[in-house]
Amino acid sequence: MSRLGQRFETLAADGRKALNTYIVAGDPVPEATVPAMHALVRGGADLIELGVPFSDPEAEGPTIQAGIERALAHDVTLADVLDMMSAFRSDDRDTPVVLMGYLNPFLRMGYEAFCKRAADAGVDGVIVVNLPPEEAGTFRNALCVRGMDLVLLVAPTTTSERAAYIAGQGSGFLYYVSYKGVTGARRADAASVAKRLTDVRAAARGLPVLVGFGIKDGASAANIAPHADGVVVGSALVETMGCTAVAGIPDSLQAQVREIRDALD
């Protein structure tokens, strides 16, 4: 079984919600990333979403845009991200890691070449913001052959019929975007998420559903988590990466994640 599948099975058996944490690879400097990933795990993250920097992140709000710009100032490439991933894997065999980014860097490396290198580096899946399922066939098959997941997104504007189609095309988990807008723009609204999630979870047919966008801290995580299989925290962590001295990042992240973990459990 895949690392992602195993993790969700364990969480379900323990009756716990998944805490998925996002940071941008190479932010604020390349050498900060691997220690930051270990800190996320120590703080209680179940999954890591590692952002692949891209020059034109059209779905990101200002906080994550700034994180991506900090990484790009050091010319961090997809190949560099895979190297960071290998380094992380040499000390952590268990925590699932999903790369999150925009299509062009993956396309440029080539789906086959990327999948081979990613599998060797211990990547468990990818989320590509601007790759809806209709365009995803080739990439998904290349990932599947190497045992990696293509995680797809469902939005508040997605019809129920389409949500079922998306769930059938994706694997690993289903990422529900809590509001219409860019990352970090506002708080997730528990009532509207709850209303929609009943529908989306039915459409998911057992695929775990994680909610992201607008979950910043323990309180907002605890508000949303009862309606889903887990939550994703991104902008709040990237904010910390941006305003903390590099040496202090691991401790700050660990404490921040721990607060969210405790609120969830």
Partner: peptide
Amino acid sequence: QDGRFGDYGGRFVAETLIHA
């Protein structure tokens, strides 16, 4: 019908926009 001009075109956007 799916917006392809040969290999080009298509619809590479965030899911939120697909409905629109």
